[in-house]
Structures are given as C-alpha cells and as structure tokens.
Amino acid sequence: MKTAAMKSFTKKEWTSADELIAESAVSEALTESSTQVDKSNDSSSVSVVFPKRPQISMGRMAEAHQNTLNELSVLSQLQHENIISLLSVVVTPPSILIEYAPMGTMKLMYETYHQSSQRLSPCVSQITIVQIASGIEFLHKRSIVYRDLKGDNVLVWRFPTPNNPPLVATNNEVLIKLSDYGIGQFASINGLRGFAGTPGFIAPEIIKYHGKEVYSNKVDIFSLGMVIYELITLHPPYDKFNQQQANQAIESGVRPSLSKKDLNSLILQRELMIWCWQQDPEMRPTATQVVEVARSQQFCRLVDGIRIDNDGRVLCVCHREIPITLRQKN
C-alpha cells in the first residue's frame, strides 16, 4: 500500500472525517490509488484510505474507485489477528478507516536490518512466516485470493530491532498484518482470472496466459515463496531485473539465487521457499501446510552449522532432517 500526505492530528482536530480527508488531499497532488493519515496522538491510531484525484485519465479514476470498492468488499468480511482491520467507512468522499501500522512495512524492516549488517534471527523468521501464512490461510478459507503478497503489503506492529534480537520470538515480539486488498478477489469454485500482482512476485501461470486462463489460490503460495526469499536475503527477488526480465525469468522457471551468507539461513526455511515457488501450482503446498511446517518444533532449530554467541555458548546446532510432508513434495 503506497503512502502519501502523511500528517498528524490531535484528538480535538479529529472532528470530521470529511475535513481530514479534504485537508490531506489538498496537501499534495494525488495521483495514486490510496493514502494513509496517521492519528498519532490518540492511543488507537488509524489510517484513512481513499481514492486519490487522478491527473491522467478517467480510466485511472475508475480503476482507483474500483480498487477501493474491492478493498472494502474484502475487508468488511475479515476479522483475524494477522489481517488489517476495517474500522469505519465514510460515504462522501468515499474513504476507508483502517488500523495504522506504527512500524511501517516489512520492506522497511528489511532495509533496517540490511543497514545494520544483520540478518533476521531464526525464531523471528519462523514466527514471521507463521503469521503471514496464517493470514493467507484465513483468506483462502473464505475463497479470497490475495494476488499481491509482498513485503510492501505486510504491515508491522511489533518487530525486534537488529541490535536486540530475541532468542525466542513470540507474538509479544512480532505482530504483522496483511494489507492492501485493492486487487484481491473472491474466487469461484473454478478459480479466477485477471492479470494482477507485482513483478517478481507474480505466479508463472498468471504470466504465461496474461491472466486470461483460470488459476487458483496457489498463486498466493508462489508469492509467499518470494516473501520467504525476502526474509532470507533482505531484498526483493529479481531486484536487478526490469519488469519484463522478471516475468520472463519466472515463466521460464528461473528463480532468484542465494549468496553464501544467505545459506546460513534455516534449512527448512529454504526448503519451504522452494516448495512454495514450484512452477507447477499443484506441487505447491496449501497455506495450511505452510503453517504446519513453519510451526514445527524442528523449524527454527535446523540451521546449516553451529551458531555460537560471543562467549562461545551454543545457540543452535545443525540438523538436516526434513519432515515427511516436505520430503514427499520435493
């Protein structure tokens, strides 16, 4: 979800959603489809999302309006700890009040860790995958296909800092939620059509047929594989490619590479990533299977080697056993 026109308002000033939206809209030339406004001086922060004023064409206006309606249609049915909540709706101008993420997006977390020359700890990676997959599982059980899963659309409420990683992460240290359902769709029993997503995260079956053939919710699992890649490398897949090159690579089965440093990540995390980004959607796991594997006791213990702290104490020991469910798929 792209963010613009950020401004703080006191509780006293928060008297009219119309005035708030109008003031924010005037503050910047608005050409995108949505924005956020932080009400940071109240204990329950919110964001306001509304169609921006397009400066190009009526087509862009219609698209922005439709994306807002899609997001409202999806959000109105969702109540889950890892799904951003819809708080209220304003009719004129059309706007949506949603939760405000105090720590921004997962992309910002990647950048913060990268700038500190740190990697996500095994336990933080594990619980992050569990929470993202739990949100996707919730959507899929309600026949909703997300279609734009990426670090930019994963919002962060709680996350450890690079210099103070916990040895064991829980929901007290990590809380993330999926956002931006402008291109999310309810799928029929036969699947759905349409070209949607972000280059580098789009499933090959969408690219191959330009969205004109029916596909399933397994497109979200492919994107989840790319998000796991982001968790390992701290950068987006195919970040050196342009849009056409990224699409061609995915369609031909070429996957982003890992550096030597990346290979210090959890073995099961890498295996799960490979399972998720399989070329054949039928070979990918369901979101429920991803949650089960990521929640397994072995997941954050399986590291390639021995991890010790500065005092020589062993933190993790290598173990290459792979669960049967994962071994059968690969």
Score class of each variant (00 low, 15 high):
169 A>L: 12
208 K>C: 11
172 N>C: 09
5 A>H: 09
16 S>G: 11
267 I>S: 08
321 E>I: 05
47 S>E: 00
32 E>S: 10
189 I>V: 13
167 L>E: 10
10 T>F: 08
237 P>G: 12
101 A>Q: 05
158 R>F: 02
252 S>K: 06
71 E>C: 14
297 Q>E: 13
259 S>D: 02
286 T>P: 10
139 L>S: 04
164 N>K: 09
299 F>E: 02
40 S>W: 02
191 G>Q: 09
59 G>K: 13
293 V>Y: 06
241 F>G: 01
33 S>Q: 11
230 E>L: 10
213 E>R: 13
168 V>T: 13
162 P>F: 04
277 W>G: 11
70 N>W: 03
210 H>K: 15
23 E>R: 14
214 V>A: 08
294 A>G: 14
65 H>F: 03
249 A>I: 02
292 E>N: 14
29 A>F: 11
36 Q>T: 06
185 Q>E: 14
235 H>S: 02
14 W>K: 14
60 R>P: 01
152 D>E: 10
112 T>S: 09
101 A>R: 13
58 M>I: 15
75 L>E: 05
292 E>F: 04
77 Q>T: 08
36 Q>C: 08
49 V>H: 12
319 H>A: 09
186 F>N: 15
210 H>A: 13
226 M>L: 01
287 A>K: 07
85 S>V: 02
173 E>L: 03
198 T>E: 05
197 G>E: 00
187 A>W: 00
259 S>P: 01
216 S>N: 10
71 E>D: 12
70 N>D: 07
183 I>W: 02
315 L>R: 14
74 V>E: 08
124 V>I: 07
93 P>I: 09
322 I>C: 05
65 H>W: 01
